[in-house]
């Protein structure tokens, strides 16, 4: 069980995980990614880093869960996370949809009022 992954590959995995983490932090620092969404990405990178360092981790956890073929655990976890995140995005999207609708209506009503005041300045409703 010792040399499941060659060291070179492990080094590559660790550097990719660190690079990814750096990329996420930069996005947050620049204000391009809101903290509420960055949460899930930080957890993702942390997991990536964890398994890059802890070489037998995947096997150990798979065995604990009774999964015969360890790599299928990756797919299970990844697909589960993706689905959850997509639902979250749909919720955000729906909320924004309503917000945009409300804003549009407010703006249209406001514009109409402004124009009617221009036309007839004495009439102040």
């Amino acid at each position: 069980m010792e040399n499941v992954i060659p060291y070179r590959l492990q080094l590559l995995a660790i550097s990719i995980a660190i690079l990814f983490m750096f990329f996420i932090f930069r996005l947050i620092a620049k204000g391009k990614l809101r903290e509420e969404y960055s949460f899930i990405w930080i957890i993702c990178t942390a997991l990536l880093l964890l398994f890059a360092i802890w070489r037998n981790g995947l096997d150990v956890i798979a065995k604990l869960m009774g999964i015969y073929y360890a790599p299928s655990l990756i797919f299970l976890g990844a697909i589960f996370a993706i689905v959850i995140f997509l639902v979250h995005l749909s919720v955000v999207n729906s909320r924004q949809h309503k917000q945009i609708k409300d804003l549009t209506q407010e703006m249209a009503l406001f514009k109409e009022k402004l124009e009617s005041l221009f036309k007839d300045p004495k009439k102040e409703k």
Partner: peptide, 8 residues
């Protein structure tokens, strides 16, 4: 009339 700036 009222003009909506975005199609709703």
């Amino acid at each position: 009339h009222i003009n909506l700036p975005v199609n709703l």
